[in-house]
């Protein structure tokens, strides 16, 4: 059987030349390669994650797969159909939920909104009602189903969006940062549902994008790390962590350093990423090292810059360290 999702040298470029129907005086946009020769193959039944920082190209990939955007070159197939040539059979089999989505009409109730969107898939109303009731229970949203949408909180609203996306029982669902901006409880409820949904029935496929390492680690069978439109690695969370298993990962917290680029020239430093701590004036630098040898050089460089070391610890490799070792910076 063919894959649920497959791409071949998929490339998408924005801007660079003046568009048809664009006014002459408007300057043509800067050229951005949002996706650069992406090759992916996601079998049916997989919960596949795309992990990457803002602007990496995650949403662009999802829009192409959801038949909302055409590739500049290369191909993409969903459920075996070409997104550019054969969008309608794809559309019957997919759905999409985006984080922070504000879709629907405020004057309608939650239930009416979900019903309306289900009609665009031709679902019989009686069946819709049953499925909506089941899903409302899953998300613990029964009490808000007959409230007007504009009275919903952010978390409730995103639960409605999830119900909207899943009500059509898609074969393949695209979840674009579905927990973005949610409080812990709402996010947990959504993650719990995704896990349950995919286990409930064989062959269901989820493509999830996130820039939350823990979310990716917790949910995904496989993860592709994407940056600047390129897939840098693609494996199971464990497989990705194995990439840096032999490496030493080290976190040091110091006063703010004037120049961190010098770390790059220390032999044995594979990569590092800096994150400013929200409180105070300290910062944390995460290093991926070949072995213990460079630690002494790092320490003397910190001291040379007149900075104090607040703490230093070796850590277990998590996806965050994998990401840093591949990309050379943190996710945020």
């Amino acid at each position: 059987m063919e894959a649920a999702i497959a791409t071949r040298n998929l490339t998408r470029v924005f801007g660079g030349k003046r568009r048809r129907l664009q006014r002459k005086r408007e300057p043509s946009e800067k050229r951005v390669v949002a996706l650069d020769s992406v090759n992916l193959e996601i079998p049916h039944g997989e919960l596949f994650g795309l992990l990457g920082p803002n602007g990496a190209g995650k949403t662009t990939l999802i829009k192409i797969l959801a038949t909302l955007l055409l590739p500049t070159s290369g191909e993409a197939y969903v459920a075996g159909y070409d997104v550019a040539k054969d969008p309608f059979p794809i559309r019957k089999r997919i759905n999409m939920v985006t984080g922070g989505e504000t879709s629907g009409y405020g004057l309608l109730t939650t239930r009416e909104n979900v019903w309306m969107f289900s009609q665009f898939y031709g679902m019989p109303s009686r069946q819709v009602k049953k499925v909506i009731d089941l899903l409302a229970e899953e998300f613990d949203l029964q009490e808000r189903m007959d409230a007007k949408v504009r009275t919903l909180s952010t978390g409730e609203r995103q639960k409605m969006n999830m119900i909207r996306g899943f009500v059509t029982d898609p074969e393949i669902i695209f979840l674009d940062e579905p927990t973005l901006g949610l409080d812990v409880t709402a996010a947990r409820s959504i993650r719990g549902f995704i896990k349950k949904w995919i286990q409930e029935q064989k062959g269901r496929t989820v493509l999830l994008t996130t820039h939350d390492m823990m979310e990716a680690d917790e949910l995904c069978d496989r993860i592709a790390i994407i940056d600047r439109g390129r897939i840098l690695a693609c494996d199971s969370p464990e497989g990705l962590k194995r990439l840096i298993k032999k490496d030493v990962t080290l976190k040091i917290e110091t006063d703010r350093l004037k120049d961190t680029s010098v770390f790059r020239s220390i032999p044995g430093v594979r990569n590092f990423a800096v994150s400013e701590n929200p409180k105070g004036r300290s910062m944390t630098t995460t290093f991926i090292l070949e072995d213990d040898a460079p630690i002494a050089d790092i320490m003397s460089e910190v001291l040379r810059q007149g900075s104090r070391v607040h703490s230093l610890k070796k850590t277990e490799p998590t996806l965050e360290e994998v990401f840093i070792s591949l990309v050379g910076r943190g996710l945020d």
Partner: peptide, 18 residues
Amino acid sequence: QIGNLQLYMMAPMSRMAL
């Protein structure tokens, strides 16, 4: 602006139904 258009356009309905 509110994000409905993309949901309409990715649905399997005919554009004339919309």
